[in-house]
Design a protein around this nucleic acid. Structure first.
Length: 297
DNA sequence: ACAGGCTCCTGCAGGC
DNA sequence: TGCCTGCAGGAGCCTG
């Protein structure tokens, strides 16, 4: 499932490929899900816009969009031909709109050629002036697609704190007086943005903390260990292009490699890499949870 | 206010 | 072999 490192990898890949491109045509499926904004409205609102940049915010991919222009431009130029006039659009231009993509469990955002085979459960196809196509595929439809007109709505901002940059004091404050267990707290996107099941389990293992411990009862030292291990595991996973479990692939359809570095996730019954004790699996906050009964206290 | 549980959805694994 | 059932999970919503 795509979490922070996977979303970061995808956002970077998509940014590199479609920055400066123009959306010539947009097609959306007619399902109720995964659309936060009605699909017909999204398609209409996206057509003609320049893609200024693509970045990650929590588990969301945010495409910053410039103004609508009538004629073609290409990914390699900042010059937009509009009628007979040639207009220069800087990619640092203030965005006028945003297209926000949440991948949910099984969502994929791919940059392809238009003649590439259309996968089942394709919900959005954006034709680009460069000749490429941006596609959103999501079998389970837990993903979300949203269009925001920044003239009418505020800029998207993930609710929780950013795990890669949060400081020690702020991290401790997040969990103070919270009765829920630390695993549930890590998964709560209003506290921290971007941590999902894999990296919750992996960071708790590396910090030596049992997933069911009450968040508010962890010592300052334990929380600091957790903060540093969480940051490290996320950064390491980004370097390896994310974890490919289930059907995760990056913007090119390539798989990541961090799944080879998992210490506990999906290793039920296998020996702990630190002490050899079989890894155990339980249910915490309704999620499959993996831990070492000896290394984690 | 906060915590926990239910729901959406499809693919896949396991059992008969 | 083939059908059926159950389970996986992010996050929004509902309930206690």
């Amino acid at each position: 499932m795509p979490e922070l490192p996977e979303v970061e990898t995808i956002a970077r890949g998509v940014h590199d490929r479609i920055r400066g491109d123009r959306i010539t045509q947009a097609w959306f499926s007619s399902h109720r899900e995964p659309f936060k904004t009605p699909p017909a409205r999204q398609a209409k609102a996206l057509e003609g816009r320049i893609i200024l940049n693509v970045h990650r915010d929590g588990k969301h991919i945010v495409c910053e969009l410039g103004p609508r222009v009538e004629e073609a431009t290409t990914a390699s130029t900042l010059d937009v031909i509009s009628g007979k006039k040639k207009t220069r659009i800087a990619l640092t231009t203030k965005p006028e709109a945003q297209w926000i993509v949440h991948l949910g469990m099984t969502g994929r955002l791919l940059v392809t050629t238009p003649d590439g085979q259309v996968a089942a459960h394709t919900h959005a196809r954006l034709s680009l002036a460069s000749g490429r196509e941006l596609r959103f595929v999501d079998p389970r439809r837990f993903g979300r697609l949203e269009f925001r007109d920044l003239g009418k709505a505020t800029s998207f901002s993930a609710a929780g704190a950013e795990p890669l940059t949060i400081g020690a004091e702020e991290f401790v404050a997040l969990f103070r007086a919270r009765k829920l267990c630390i695993k549930a707290a890590l998964l709560n996107q209003t506290l921290l943005s971007g941590v999902g099941n894999i990296y919750a389990d992996e960071s708790l293992f590396r910090a030596g903390i049992r997933p069911r411990r009450s968040a508010g009862r962890l010592s300052k030292a334990e929380l600091e260990r957790l903060r540093l291990n969480l940051r490290e595991v996320l950064q390491h996973a980004i370097r390896l292009g994310g974890s490919s479990v289930s059907d995760y692939v990056d913007a090119d359809g390539a798989r990541g490699f961090f799944q080879l570095e998992h210490c506990v996730y999906l290793r039920t019954g296998l020996p702990c890499l630190m002490c050899g004790t079989p890894i155990r699996r339980t249910l915490v906050a309704g999620r499959g949870t993996h831990f070492c009964p000896k290394c984690q206290h």
